[in-house]
């Protein structure tokens, strides 16, 4: 089934916590006006969307709480803890860890030690664009280190999820970030964006492309008064992504923002995105083999492949 719009991400403030690949460069508080918040909630209700509030690191005025609590929701930055460094211990079951690739590699054993404490760990690499082929081996080793702990935990009936390793075991088709088609973001200015990163870019005047002209500088895809309008929306779907639709790194984020930034086309992933996703896919395969050898169920067989970037074998499609 094609993805359909299910989630509305509401950035409560310009300084709301970054919870995905893109860092939030905005430092000046700019709280979403309460009327805008009400409109956003109303939009979500009418479109039957699950609300995900993204919190800043300060307490909101009391009157906001009543509005926020008027609908079912998830609080990112509260219910879902988001950290930018590896903690010694975790206080929630559901943790988002935003790390540079170097930090992920450097703290692989600290991360492994956290695994028995979490139900779900989402690892977001924050500098994927600078991933080099020379880092492949170390990234692979770090994934293997986590795998070793995961395998033991699974054998002892604990089943912590780690997005970059265990998601692939259970997926039988692409399950990506789905910005714009599965979820959209509304910013404090009342405008819609594919995801928070596009809002940050617009606010910072950063364009994804050099010498952006004003005509193309706005990154919004509609607003709460006039509704959503996503130009070339079909290009966000998997069937319009030539590289991704033949790929089986099903857990890959397929980050539209990174695509836009690195290849300039929202439906085309960068070399970095593909290589990282395939290193993870192959690590998931290793984990699967270990679990199967231990007689555990570990999903459909992940096949052995001889490439890390589907682009390199495009002649064989």
């Amino acid at each position: 089934m094609k993805p359909y719009l299910q989630y509305l991400v509401i950035l409560l403030d310009d300084t709301s916590v970054a919870y995905c690949h893109a860092n939030n460069p905005l430092t000046k508080r700019n709280l979403m006006p309460i009327d805008t918040l009400k409109k956003a909630i109303l939009f979500g209700m009418k479109q039957n969307l699950m609300i995900q509030y993204v919190y800043p690191d300060y307490e909101l005025p009391a009157e906001y709480n009543e509005v926020i609590e008027s609908i079912d929701h998830v609080k990112i930055g509260k219910d879902v803890q988001v950290l930018n460094e590896v903690p010694k211990a975790v206080i929630t079951d559901n943790l988002v860890l935003r790390l540079t690739i170097a930090d992920f590699i450097a703290h692989q054993y600290d991360l492994a030690a956290l695994l028995p404490q979490v139900k779900r760990l989402n690892i977001c690499l924050t500098d994927m664009e600078s991933f080099t082929d020379a880092q492949q081996e170390n990234y692979k080793k770090a994934l293997a280190a986590l795998n070793a702990v995961l395998a033991n935990l699974y054998k002892s009936q604990q089943q912590p999820q780690v997005n970059i390793l265990t998601d692939r075991l259970t997926l039988t088709e692409m399950h990506n970030c789905e910005a714009g088609i599965g979820n959209i973001t509304v910013a404090p200015n009342g405008k819609f964006y594919l995801c928070p990163a596009f809002y940050y870019d617009e606010k910072m005047g950063i364009s994804n492309r050099m010498n952006h002209k004003a005509k193309d500088a706005s990154r919004s895809i509609g607003d709460l008064d006039n509704g959503l309008e996503i130009p070339n929306k079909h290009l966000l779907y998997l069937d319009h992504a030539p590289l991704c639709r033949i790929c089986d790194a099903y857990h890959c984020n397929r980050c539209i923002w990174l695509n836009d930034r690195l290849t300039w086309d929202s439906n085309t992933p960068s070399h970095q995105q593909c290589v990282i996703a395939h290193l993870e896919r192959n690590a998931a395969r290793d984990l699967q083999q270990q679990l199967k050898e231990a007689g555990l169920q570990a999903g459909d067989e992940i096949k052995e492949i001889n490439y890390l970037d589907p682009f390199d074998v495009k002649e064989t499609w």
Binding site: R209, M210, H212, K213, P242, W264, D265, H271, F311, K314
Partner: peptide, 29 residues
């Protein structure tokens, strides 16, 4: 109406990421 699609220059070479959309284009997509 659009900005130039610069894929590199004589000093830094070609950024292969910028070529990926072109080299994966097909008629129906």
């Amino acid at each position: 109406d659009k900005e130039a699609w610069i894929i590199g220059n004589i000093h830094d070479g070609i950024d292969k990421n910028k070529l990926r959309p072109f080299l994966t284009l097909d008629r129906c997509t």
